[in-house]
Computed example of a mutant assay.
Amino acid sequence: MTVRNRILILLSAVAVLVAVGVASVLHASARADRRDHTQAGGPKVIAGKVTLTGHGRMVFRTLAWGPHRDELVTVPVADPAGPRTASGVKCLRFHAASGTGVCLQAVHGPVSDTYRALVLDSRLRTRDRYDVPGIPSRARVSPTGHFAAWTAFVGGDSYAGTDFSTRTAIVDTRTGELIPSLEAFRIVRDGHPYRAADANFWGVTFAPDDRTFYATLATGGRTHLVRGDLRTRTVTTLHENVECPSLSPDGTRIAYKKRVKGLPKDAPWHLYVLDLHTLRETALDESRSVDDQVVWRDDHTLVYALPGDYGADLYTVPANGSGLPHRLLSAGVSAAFLD
């Protein structure tokens, strides 16, 4: 064998060894990437069928990294940390009751985003859509499914300060009749008619009678819980320092966030529950500032979002102030519990 042939054989062997080494490194790297992606992405999410019917399930917006991030997903209430079934429907804010859902979405344009509200049927099909004049903030469906409400920021983007304005709309999901702004309602404050240019509403929650609702009214530097009447188009003040109210399933209490003196300006709230008969407040055993419209899982337990590794996690706390908070699930917001 000539020297030239020996050199060629040696070079070929070296090339094979290099190729094997590179392939091994790439394979190991790919496995590590997949493993890291799974860890970084959080809970397992798979595509499937999601409906707004079925007892013992919850639907929410998942924030787990991956192709299904921001989609509505469902899990059993008994296994909230289990695998999530993804719907393909993306929402920024969401709520549902009695087989009707409301989904606030961003519509991405070439220059800027716009926003819309979708009224969904029990199979998440769009029944109606409405323009939303700002950044979506709150969404709620009445217990009967006959009404839906949403709030958007039309000036500013946070409730923490005072330099913001909101627009809150209510729609009859049966007829499509839209009340584009609660600012058109007559205000009764402390028993007297009241008008003010700075009146601002947000955070609607409905009673099951298809007439009564509650919301926050801000005016004159103060916030008030108001009771609204959809027939007379009137709101009446009930209690001060109430934001983002949520009516209990039995209709006797309001859970809400309350500004507490001494807390940071960008995180000024603690959770409270108000007895509507006595107007007695109960502080809940959650020491962190909660900027959310809480949801009642049942008559005894509240669910709300707090910042987390993927954007937000959902927590629970007893509604009577008797127990500590507990993390329900990671990487999720905007929960609805199906009947």
Rank of each mutant, 00 (worst) to 15 (best):
G41A: 11
T173V: 09
T236P: 05
L8M: 13
L8A: 15
V204P: 01
D210L: 07
G66K: 06
L225G: 05
A152M: 06
D190V: 03
R116Y: 05
L329G: 07
R280Y: 04
R167D: 05
R123N: 12
V188K: 05
R189H: 14
P208E: 11
H277Y: 12
L276M: 06
A78S: 15
D113T: 15
L238M: 15
V171D: 02
A148K: 00
T126V: 15
F164H: 14
L276W: 05
R297Q: 13
D210C: 12
A197I: 06
F94N: 01
R227V: 07
E71P: 03
L329C: 13
H37N: 13
A199C: 07
E183D: 12
V22C: 06
S142D: 03
V119C: 02
H224N: 10
A78L: 09
T168F: 01
L92N: 05
A40G: 04
L225F: 01
R140V: 12
P318F: 02
D309R: 15
Y272C: 07
H108C: 00
A117M: 00
G228H: 00
V75T: 14
Y159Q: 12
L247S: 03
F153D: 06
Q105I: 15
R69N: 08
G221N: 10
L324Y: 02
Y315C: 04
R116W: 04
L118C: 07
R116N: 13
H224P: 06
T175Q: 07
R297F: 08
V333N: 12
V77G: 03
S165D: 14
I170P: 01
L182E: 01
S330E: 13
A169L: 01
L104H: 03
R57Y: 13
H239R: 11
H270N: 14
